[in-house]
Design a protein around this nucleic acid. Sequence first.
DNA 1: AGATGACCTTAACGCAGGTTAGCCTCATTG
DNA 2: CAATGAGGCTAACCTGCGTTAAGGTCATCT
Lengths: 245, 245
Amino acid sequence: MSIVARHDLHFLVHRLSRGFPLSDMEASAISHLPIMLKHVEAGADILREGDPASEACIVLEGLVCRYEIVAEGGRQIQAYHIPGDIPDLAGLHLQTLEHNICALRPSIVAMVSHRALHILIAEHPQIGARLWRETAIDAAVAHAWVSNIGRRTARARMAHFLCEMLARYQALDLASDTIPCIITQLELGDSQGMSVVHVNRVLKSLKRAGLIEMRGKNIRIRDQVALQFAGDFDPSYLHLSEAVH
Amino acid sequence: MSIVARHDLHFLVHRLSRGFPLSDMEASAISHLPIMLKHVEAGADILREGDPASEACIVLEGLVCRYEIVAEGGRQIQAYHIPGDIPDLAGLHLQTLEHNICALRPSIVAMVSHRALHILIAEHPQIGARLWRETAIDAAVAHAWVSNIGRRTARARMAHFLCEMLARYQALDLASDTIPCIITQLELGDSQGMSVVHVNRVLKSLKRAGLIEMRGKNIRIRDQVALQFAGDFDPSYLHLSEAVH
DNA sequence: AGATGACCTTAACGCAGGTTAGCCTCATTG
DNA sequence: CAATGAGGCTAACCTGCGTTAAGGTCATCT
């Protein structure tokens, strides 16, 4: 853990620039945010439910998720966060958050104080708008998950989810046809509302149909179009490339 | 439909004031937003998926929902909106929205142009922060729905949902123990990810247990504490009353 | 090299909840 | 007041998926 002023926030800058580039001044203001790097091991919590929020974390490397424990010990993973994401951005305007954030794989995150963010936003309203947009996208993705879990069969649901993850990594140029992080079947089940056993069945079915294959522990999408069809997937809700108005 | 400058936005002002009151100037700036009233009949769409967004709607009266049609004709209701809510606030920062908004009951909404909102926010940054907070709460509620639909049994899920609706109406002083709007069993099913038939079974079970009862077409919660227990419900995710920082 | 533990895989069994279908009630309308 | 239609209710049947259990692979540790 160390204080750094010029570490790599480029995935964040990239995200916020989607649609319409930030000015050099704005990009540089972001890069110069006072951050504290934190190396988190797999399975470790970064933020606990109910913690009073005074800083936010930006994912730089690895895989982070937001989850909640519901009655009877079940864990529901509500969102996955990849480099450039700010899992707890909502905390900037809420007293406490009702979910936990943890690293699923060894990860590196940058902690930024809310104070610094508020100053940044006050000086650069445009950055505020872009961050607000991130909050809106977060909500849009969550709503898409509601539809996915509520109305689709397990197979379509899994296909939809895999399309989402691949598309997000592709937008960062971190993937072409293989989801570059490892997600265990237990994690897949905990996020898609199904049991591990059924995850296995569904993956098998997608493999048999030639839509995906396993590459070591990673998932390779063999036929993205067919998988999108199977999952009734339309990437627009991710707002990966639209202009700002 | 008529242009009015002083209609009743008091539920909105109330929402935005939660935790810490707005200044008189701010409250009055909101009340003087140039709005266009729209009376919408039950079942009518207010906004269609993919419409380029240039205005937002504020619910004044009635019941509005956000929904999406998934493959094979199923409808998933992603959120219910009651007076004071802005169902399409996210559109302020996104090009297009991926969902539809429709009135479930005869409703009155106020349409505000994004231009007017941008001006309001520029002149009153505090209002911008409060609106941003609304976006964050919207996301928090959606995440709670993911947990609800993903991990809870139909019975607990329904209990949780009823608690949510009641709590939201109570926060507006529009309810004590009865959810003041009518929600049909079909709508309940489409939002909770279950069939009408099963909605009926579950409601019956909650009735038999003395947790709820029907009052005409409305649902009365007979034992709020027990219902919260049955639904593993904790209202904090709704952020109904917390202070702003 | 054997032990340990995390994860994957498959089979067998059972149930929560979907589907289909039919009837009932009540409000609205001509 | 008869006709229509929206919504509620219930029964019978069936299936997608959960549960339990057991064995397999692989990496890591001693």
